[in-house]
Design a binder for these strands. Structure first.
Lengths: 233, 233
DNA sequence: CGCGTGGTTGAACATGATCAAGGTCTGTGG
DNA sequence: CCACAGACCTTGATCATGTTCAACCACGCG
């Protein structure tokens, strides 16, 4: 892991960050120790239950947030993309509520929670930006509850894949660093079952996979598959 | 449905409400049109997709927040108890993201979203209080994702029942206005399956049910049942 | 090479959904 | 007061979905 002092003023992501609303001067005077860090794939950035010291912005790469059950089973609670925040629950809970594990090599900026808290008290725009993200996370979590509670395996997987590629609108083929096991832990399925459904989708030419990239030739079609009476309960 | 003007200053719930941090004088001068309303069981307070005009505080009774899938299936996203907030997503989204349906007769206070928004801009304490609830809702939603994704039916039901009675610590027996269908829509199960598991729990004397009340003689025991390798994926 | 990780496939099994029927309770109207 | 309708619950039988266990394959890497 490499770390160096970050230059927020010239940060490429400033426009989408929690500092988006601030003037150049304000950003200059954040008075915060912001670190630019890089971590390789498969690194645990923090563990569930750890005292929360830092929050992060994901600048590049993919991260999974995982919760473990006492019986040794894991559930991926959220998947983070370019631009997402993590560790901010530490503003309210003093301990991390999940483990954060990189799926790829990632670039992050790391903020001290104490300083961030103080700062966000001072600058309402920052606080608002954080809360807006929380609200969005809640919305997504509720959508996921619906997915898990009311859809069948194939429909869940199909909707998920649609959403995933939707997060990379520019490319034809989206990077896809998830293993079958990751997919299983995200969708509440066994890796074998995920594997079978993926094979099925490929057989029906609804999906292509090459070297860590996926492509959905006709999203409409896969979406139909996703909705096609994929119901339960 | 009955409605009358509310007297926030003397509200019994002021201590736990979003106005908790305010002085008596500040509450007096909220300058908001707060309505005290009562609705019978089975009423839809608002529909998913409706333009959001009001937010509510639940003073008494139970409410379910429901999302429907295109194929006519419903998922209960959250269950609200005495003291919970609803409709506040309207502060950010302009439309309600779920339907709110009463499980019992309920007392609510109704706030205008526009006025509430203005107010919360003015009084940081109010804004903070709302955000604290959002953060908590997110946490609970993530816990539910874990339940739905990583546990089996019986374990899900058992943990849910434990939590439910936990929300009524004062009484031995907790009020239980949920139908088997509600339970199914909450836990992602068919009503029949819920019925069977409930029967099983009763057979093992882990649970009693009388006239809309439930009692868990030995929560420890039911908790064991809930954790007992109730794993999946 | 030879190993390890991740992916695939098959067969047996378990869990839970679905379909169907009957039961209980409550409120309503005769 | 009784009959009846409607909602909710229960139970059984059958079927579908998804898990588990086991073997095997493909690939990247030492």
């Amino acid at each position: 892991m490499t770390a160096r002092h970050s230059d927020c003023v010239h940060c490429l992501m400033r426009g989408q960050s929690i500092f988006a609303g601030l003037s150049r001067e304000e950003v200059c005077e954040l008075g915060m120790d912001v670190q630019d860090i890089h971590v390789p794939a498969g690194t645990t950035i923090y563990h569930e239950g750890d005292p929360a010291q830092y929050a992060y912005t994901l600048r590049q790469g993919g991260i999974k947030l995982v919760k473990s059950l006492p019986n040794g089973h894991a559930q991926i609670v959220r998947l983070l993309h370019h631009g997402d925040l993590l560790g901010f629950e530490g503003l309210r809970t003093d301990r991390h509520r999940h483990s954060a594990i990189t799926l790829t090599g990632t670039d992050l900026c790391r903020l001290e929670l104490r300083a961030l808290d103080a700062l966000s008290q001072r600058l309402p725009a920052v606080r608002e930006a954080i809360f807006a993200r929380w609200q969005q996370a809640l919305q997504e979590a509720e959508d996921r509850i619906v997915e898990l509670g009311a859809k069948k395996a194939d429909a869940r997987l199909a909707t998920f894949l649609c959403q995933w590629v939707g997060a990379y609108p520019q490319q034809r083929a989206a990077p896809f660093p998830l293993t079958r096991q990751d997919l299983g832990e995200f969708l509440g399925l066994s890796t074998e079952h995920v594997s079978r459904i993926m094979a099925d989708l490929k057989r029906h030419r609804l999906l292509h996979e090459h070297k860590g990239q996926i492509e959905i030739p006709d999203p409409q079609n896969l979406f139909l598959y996703a909705s096609s009476d994929g119901t339960r309960a």
